[in-house]
Amino acid sequence: MAQMNMTQALNSAMDVMLGRDPAVVLMGEDIGYFGGVFRVTDGLQRKYGAHRVLDTPIAEGGIVAAAIGMAVNGLRPVAEIQFADYIYPGFDQITSELARLRYRSAGDFYAPVTIRTPCGGGIRGGQTHSQSPEAIFTHVCGLKVVMPSNPYDAKGLLIAAIEDDDPVIFFEPKRLYNGPFDGDPAKPAAPWSTHPKGEVPEGHYRVPLGKAEIVRPGRDLTIVSYGTMVHVAAAAASAHGLDAEIIDLRSLVPLDTDTICASVRNTGRCVIAHEATRFSGFGAEILSVIQEECFWDLQAPIQRVTGWDTPYPHAFEWEYFPSQARFAAAFRVVMEPA
């Protein structure tokens, strides 16, 4: 085991896979010589060569399309989109092509492409460096969608994603790259070395796609979350003195409905939290599943803690970001006696 932050863990996952499988190639803007604007691919071009760690033109549509072509020709590309906010020029290639190639060719062609992209706010990045567009991709049939909340999962999930024969959109909450974040920007930043999930094996391991993790068992209520909000939720519940069962989805597609429903059946109360905007957000899907499967077990209306339905505003970052205070409002409703 080694101490790693999330960038190091992701780097290690790609290092392991480049070493194990000659079909793995990395591609993206500034990822090669420079090692990526967040240093996630640092040193990999030096180690594996410029033919396997490719700098690309600034053309997300081109990056995704070329990755598809490479994958069809036997490679296993891991493409970086520098910020999730910049993924949209690649949207047609992702939704109409990457997601559907297997289906439309009856399985004769497929493209095992992993698209890594930093997402989320909390870094004063304004509207073009802070978005959380995961729900858009969960709505596209044929894409797996992943978002880790810690270094251990990040490495294991990225290896599983690269080895998966289906395309995976792999969101990296950039606020978590260097340490867990409980939603309070005034507190000094804590490094991953203070967190048990900063312990990461150096070799190969997988965290399976489609399997949620119960971060903390509890009896009072269930909190379903993923990415940065897992940490904010835990801090909020603890500050409120609630014995919350906290579920980190890790994969949004496939969705581990069994773990969610088993927990809600026990607690009868549920808060769903994500950083992304609320309307048609992924929380709505989770909420529907719970309503369909656990309606008679519920003791209070399910609550959502989310970003507001606005673009991500630079000056109002901490009024926008789902805070512990926003959890408090949700807790008040969901903890009403039945």
Binding site: G125, G126, Q127, T128, H129, P311, P313, H314, A315, F316
Partner: peptide
């Protein structure tokens, strides 16, 4: 400065 006279009303980098 994203201040009270910001033409973007605080919404932009």
């Amino acid at each position: 400065l994203s201040n009270t006279r910001d033409m973007c009303k605080g919404r932009q980098l």
